[in-house]
């Protein structure tokens, strides 16, 4: 189980937290002005990258506060944790472990103990 460093409580096991999916998705200011398709994009479509992912967590069994994290979904390594009020970190701040465009990392993922 991965560890998450709650910005308010400190490092805790992931099971204390609930994931809230992609971060920085802003609820449309005027939903009525959107087409069905545009609205559907907001309600149902979220990024699902293999690699660097900006996501939300809430410390459900703790302070109940929401915060953001940048995690490499190909290794589950948490690269950064920041408060909702903090600026969104640039993707260039993070060293990616990705090896290929479809996102096979060098270590840490996949099924192979031996890499060719």
């Amino acid at each position: 189980m991965i560890l998450i460093n709650c910005p308010y409580c400190g490092e805790r096991e992931q099971s204390e937290f609930t994931n809230g999916g992609e971060a920085h998705v802003v609820r449309p200011k005027d939903p009525d002005s959107l087409s069905d398709k545009e609205w559907g994009q907001y309600v149902f479509f979220r990024s699902n990258p293999k690699g660097i992912f900006y996501e939300r967590w809430v410390h459900t069994h703790g302070c109940k506060k929401w915060f953001n994290a940048v995690r490499d979904t190909s290794t589950d390594t948490i690269l950064k944790i920041y408060k909702l009020s903090d600026r969104r970190p640039e993707i260039s701040e993070f060293q990616t472990t990705l090896k290929s465009p479809s996102g096979e990392p060098i270590v840490g993922s996949g099924n192979f103990a031996v890499k060719k």
């Binding site: 809430v58 459900t60 929401w66 909702l84």
Partner: peptide, 13 residues
């Protein structure tokens, strides 16, 4: 409660 907290903290802080 979680639903309310989510919107309060993340959408309408």
């Amino acid at each position: 409660l979680a639903h309310m907290e989510e919107f309060l903290q993340t959408e309408w802080p």
